[in-house]
Design a protein around this nucleic acid. Structure first.
Length: 638
RNA sequence: GCCCAUGUAGCUCAGGGGUAGAGCACUUCCUUGGUAAGGAAGAGGUCCCCGGUUCAAAUCCGGGCAUGGGCUCCA
C-alpha cells in the first residue's frame, strides 16, 4: 500500500504498486503526456518502473534539467537504432550524455564521413516520427551476453564481462534495436524531436591510445526545437569570440606553416603582451620575487640529472654541437636550481623566490596544437620558491591569494580549481608524494574553496594544483599552477644550512599564474570577446578628423594624448567620418575622438565609445582623466 | 601521434580535366563629406608542396606539410 509524497508535500495512497506514469496519470493527463521519468526517493527511475513502498516522488518532464539529460541519453540510443539500420556491420560501444549533448562511440571500419552523418540524422528523424515506445526489460546476465554475442556486438559483450557482479541488466528496446543502459530513458520517441548530430571524430576505445580508434558521433538534443535553435545560435555567437578570428581582425599575431605552434606577434598583440608582463612584474615584486634569466639551450647531462631526459624526452627539442647533446628547455626548473646553487644558502635566506619569464619549447604532438592555447613555443610566468618544509604551507597559501588577486584584476570569477595527484610515470619516493599531496590539500582546504581531484594527472616530479579557465566554446585550459616538488632539489644538489649547522634539502615549489602568456592572452581574448579593457587595448584612442582642415588639430590632440602616456592613433585618411567610425568601432577601439571645425574652434574633442555611445564634446583634460580612470580599473569591470 | 574534414587573391569564400572568379581590403583619381560602408578606374594568384595518370591537372590518384573539429597527451 504505497503512500506517495509529491514535491509540494501532497500525498496519494495506492492499494498496490504503481508506476511513475500511473501516478502522473492520476494527477492529470497533461502531466502523464509530459512524463519522461521519475525521481523516487532521490533516485532517477523509468516512467514504467513500479513503486512498491512509501516514497517521495518527483515526476520528471522535459522542463527539468534531468529530463533533458534523459532525452539526450535516449537520443544516443536512437542514434544506435538508426546506425544499425543503415550500417548493420557497425558495432556499438558506449553512448553517454555529456555537457551540452551526447555521443556514441562506434566501430565501423569503413569509417563515417560527413554525408553519413546527414543520412543517420535523417533516419533518426524518420524513426522519431513513428512515435514508437521505448521498452525496458530487466534481463538476466547470461541472456544479455547471449543476445549481444548473437548480434555481434563485441563491445557490449566486453562491457558486460567487465561487470561480473551484476546479475541482470536493463535492456532498452527501440523496436528491433537493443541497447544496454542503467537508464532511465524516455518512454516514447516523441520526446526526441529536437535532436541534431553535430560532429564526427575519432576516439580510442576506453580512452586508451593503445586500443583501436572508434568513430565517435556527437549530437545534442533539447526539450523542444526552440531550445535547440537557441543553443545553435549561442554556439554561433561564441565562435565570433574565437581568439584566432579576433586576432586576424585586430592584427594581434599570426602563425604560419614554417613554424607550427610558434607565434609571430604583431605590434598590437605584443602591446598586450608587454602590458601584461609589466603588470605581473609589479605584482611579483610586491610579493617578494626576484627576477632572473636562464639559458634556453642546456647540455643533456643536466636534463639527465633532473629526470627530464628519462621522463620528458619525447617532448623536448634536441640538438648537438661538437659532440655534445643539448636540449632546448621545456621547463625552467633545473636552471633555477643552478642559480640557487651558486653560493651557500642559510635557512635565514629562505624562502627564495626566483621568477623568470621563461621562453620554453615543447615538442607537442602535431594534433594537439590549437591557436594560442596549445603551442610549441611559449613563455611561462614561471617562478620557483625554495623554502623549508615548515614554510611550505604558508607559501602555497600566499601563492593562492596572489593568483586569485591577479585573476580578479582581469575579471575572472569562474576559475576551476583541481588537485592533480601522482602519475604512473614519476620520480621520488611515495612517502614524499604523500607529504606533497597532503600539503596541497591542506592549503586548498585552508582557503575554503571548491576543488576537485584529477587522479594520476600530476607532473612527473610532484602533484599540482591546477587553476583553469574556459574558452568561448567551453573548453577548459589550465593556466595557473602550484606544484610541490620534494625530488628535484635533491637530485640537483640544492641545500641550505639549518639553524643547527646541518645541511638540509629545500622544498621547491613550481608555480605560475598566467601559465603561459600565449594561452593566457588566448583566454583573455575570448573572455573579453576582443573588447579589451582600456588598460590592455593596443590602441586606446583613435583620433578622427572630419576634413583636411582639422588635420593639424587632430595630430596635436594625438600628440598630447601620447605625451600623457596613452596609446593614441590618428586617422587622417580622406574618408567620411562615418566610414572611419565604422572601421575603428569594428576593431573595438575603446574611444573614438572626432574633431571637426567646431571642436577645433572650441578646443574640445567629441568622444564616442566602441559601444556606440556619444559622450559629446569635452576638454582634452577631461578625456585624459576618463582614460586614466578606466586604466586604473584594470580589467575588473568586465 | 591517431580519426574525420579542409587548403584557390591580404581576408571571407565560390568554382572545377582545356584563358582563374566574387565581395571586402589594397593602389590611383574624383569627392572635403559631422558619428557604423561616397563614386570611378586599376593592380593583385606557382589554386599548400612533391610525385603519378593524361595530349592536357588548380581540378583525378598517391605521398607529404599545415590548419580546423575531436581522441590521447599537456601551460
Amino acid at each position: 500500500m504505497p503512500q506517495i509524497t509529491l514535491p509540494d508535500g501532497s500525498q496519494r495512497g495506492y492499494a498496490e504498486s504503481v508506476s511513475v506514469l500511473d501516478v502522473a496519470r492520476d494527477i492529470g493527463p497533461g502531466l502523464a503526456k509530459a512524463t519522461v521519468a521519475g525521481r523516487v526517493n532521490g533516485k532517477l527511475v523509468d516512467a514504467c518502473d513500479l513503486i512498491t513502498d512509501d516514497a517521495e516522488l518527483q515526476i520528471i518532464t522535459p522542463k527539468d534539467a534531468d529530463g533533458v539529460d534523459i532525452i539526450r541519453h535516449s537520443c544516443a540510443h536512437l542514434l544506435g537504432h538508426a546506425v544499425k539500420q543503415l550500417y548493420p556491420e557497425a558495432q556499438m560501444a558506449i553512448g553517454p550524455v555529456i555537457e551540452d549533448g551526447f555521443y556514441y562511440d562506434i566501430r565501423y571500419d569503413a569509417g563515417f564521413h560527413p554525408e553519413d552523418l546527414e543520412r543517420i540524422e535523417q533516419r533518426m528523424l524518420e524513426l522519431i516520427d513513428q512515435d514508437y515506445d521505448v521498452v525496458k526489460r530487466i534481463t538476466p546476465r547470461y541472456e544479455v551476453l547471449q543476445l549481444f554475442r548473437e548480434r555481434g556486438e563485441d563491445y557490449k559483450v566486453q562491457l558486460v564481462e567487465d561487470m561480473p557482479e551484476v546479475e541482470a541488466m536493463a535492456l532498452y528496446y527501440h523496436q528491433e534495436y537493443i541497447d544496454m543502459c542503467i537508464g532511465p530513458h524516455v518512454p516514447n520517441t516523441r520526446f526526441l524531436k529536437a535532436v541534431k548530430l553535430t560532429k564526427l571524430a575519432g576516439a580510442y576505445w576506453r580512452g586508451d591510445p593503445n586500443n583501436e580508434m572508434l568513430q565517435r558521433i556527437y549530437g545534442t538534443a533539447f526539450a523542444d526545437r526552440k531550445g535547440l535553435k537557441a543553443y545553435l545560435a549561442l554556439i554561433e555567437e561564441a565562435q565570433k569570440r574565437d581568439h584566432r578570428r579576433i586576432a586576424r581582425n585586430q592584427d594581434l599575431f599570426h602563425l604560419q606553416d614554417e613554424a607550427p605552434g610558434m607565434v609571430f606577434w604583431h605590434p598590437n598583440g605584443w602591446r598586450i603582451y608587454t602590458v601584461l608582463q609589466d603588470y605581473l612584474r609589479g605584482r611579483l615584486e610586491e610579493h617578494g620575487y626576484q627576477e632572473i634569466r636562464t639559458p634556453e639551450l642546456v647540455d643533456r647531462s643536466l636534463w639527465e640529472r633532473s629526470g627530464h631526459w628519462e621522463k620528458f624526452r619525447e617532448d623536448m627539442f634536441t640538438t648537438q654541437s661538437e659532440n655534445r647533446d643539448y636540449a632546448v628547455k621545456p621547463m625552467n626548473c633545473p636552471c633555477h636550481v643552478q642559480v640557487y646553487n651558486q653560493g651557500l644558502k642559510s635557512y635565514r635566506d629562505l624562502p627564495i623566490r626566483f621568477s623568470e619569464f621563461g621562453n620554453c619549447h615543447r615538442n607537442e604532438p602535431s594534433g594537439t596544437l590549437h591557436g594560442l592555447m596549445r603551442v610549441r613555443n611559449f613563455v611561462q610566468d614561471d617562478a620557483h620558491i625554495f623554502c623549508s618544509e615548515e614554510a611550505l604551507q604558508a607559501e602555497v597559501s600566499d601563492f593562492l591569494d596572489l593568483a586569485f588577486s591577479v585573476y580578479s584584476d582581469f575579471g575572472f570569477d569562474n576559475v576551476a580549481v583541481a588537485l592533480s595527484t601522482r602519475p604512473k610515470e614519476r620520480v621520488g619516493e611515495d612517502s614524499l608524494w604523500d607529504k606533497a599531496e597532503a600539503a596541497l590539500e591542506q592549503a586548498l582546504d585552508g582557503k575554503g574553496m571548491e576543488w576537485t581531484v584529477n587522479p594520476g594527472e600530476g607532473a612527473f616530479y610532484g602533484p599540482k594544483i591546477e587553476l583553469s579557465m574556459r574558452d568561448c566554446l567551453n573548453r577548459v585550459w589550465q593556466c595557473g599552477t602550484m606544484q610541490v616538488d620534494f625530488s628535484m632539489p635533491g637530485r640537483l644538489g640544492a641545500e641550505y644550512v639549518t639553524e643547527t649547522g646541518d645541511r638540509a634539502v629545500p622544498v621547491m615549489l613550481h608555480r605560475a599564474i598566467f601559465g603561459s602568456f600565449e594561452r593566457f592572452i588566448g583566454v583573455l581574448t575570448e573572455h573579453y570577446g576582443g573588447n579589451w579593457p582600456v588598460w590592455l587595448a593596443p590602441t586606446q584612442v583613435e583620433v578622427l578628423n572630419i576634413t583636411d582642415r582639422q588635420a593639424d588639430y587632430a595630430q596635436e590632440i594625438q600628440a598630447k594624448l601620447v605625451a600623457q602616456g596613452l596609446r593614441a592613433q590618428v586617422d587622417l585618411r580622406n574618408e567620411k567620418v562615418g566610414f572611419k567610425i565604422r572601421e575603428h568601432t569594428m576593431k573595438r577601439i575603446p574611444y573614438l575622438v572626432v574633431v571637426g571645425d567646431q571642436e577645433r574652434e572650441a578646443q574640445t574633442v567629441a568622444v564616442r565609445t566602441r559601444t556606440g555611445e556619444d559622450l559629446g564634446a569635452m576638454s582634452l583634460e577631461k578625456l585624459v582623466d576618463k582614460l586614466k580612470a578606466d586604466i586604473a580599473l584594470l580589467g575588473r569591470q568586465h
